[in-house]
Amino acid sequence: MEQSTFIQQVASEKNNAVTKSAALQEPRFVRYTLTFIALAFLAFFIVLPLVSIFSTAFQKGVGVYVAAITHPDAMAAIKLTLTVVAIAVPLNAIFGVMAAWALTKFNFKGKNLLLTIVDLPFAVSPVIAGLVFILLFGSQGLFGDWLFEHDIKIVFALPGIVLATVFVTLPFVARELIPLMQTQGTSEEEASISLGANGFKTFWYVTLPNIKWGLLYGLVLCNARAIGEFGAVSVVSGHIRGMTNTMPLHIEILYNEYQFAAAFAVASLMSVIAIITLIVKDIVAWKSKSA
């Protein structure tokens, strides 16, 4: 359901240069009013929140800012978040490529159903995404007794956080690759196979160069969501300080303890990642257009 798909962005840039004549344009005051409304709305909803994050983060000085970020709990949260991302994003990237390959290179019954299932996590509330893993692996859950007997911890530990993150970010890479590989068709792969290359070589030398920007675009979106996921992770984390708190959960704790400067310091770090995400996204969209 992520609508800013790669294809749309590429296709959309083409028609940008619409030639204007007097009969085709709104009166000047209408143009100015609409532009003013749009910019004012974005200023209040996008720019001001962003500015306020950095301003609040530094309001008690650079010392407090550095102390907040280098606090052991904050460092542990950063480390945990990076660990979760390092596991969840590659898993969903491999899945995305596999799913796109199956769904775009072959015909089979139930294809549209499978496509809908891949999309399903986008339609589920993050809180429910966390809840389902409690129902599977929690103490009262389906595998609860078995896990307890074997002394394996899944919920309120790293595996649970990873599972919830994988669930929430599952469709991102697949959703970017499926429309892209659909428009590219199968002729290049067929040529490669008929010239004697094996399946892996065909994928590596023929398919991958064609989809690399789409793949990167999906990875960037998947990564951003994995870093920032809050609801699902909050349910399965158990909020153990320095142990199972990811960065967003650490921000919540600091905020609820009225340590606003510290909360916004960690938030500013995440905002920088968000801004880098937007820049990389823009570059990738631009690269894929010129490629």
Partner: peptide, 29 residues
Amino acid sequence: FPFKRIIDGLVDLPFALPTAVAGIALTSL
């Protein structure tokens, strides 16, 4: 209008910004 490309890019900020960060920023505003 000036800075159109940057403004266009900023529209995607809600997709990239963690929801908890958006939550505390909007609350304090």
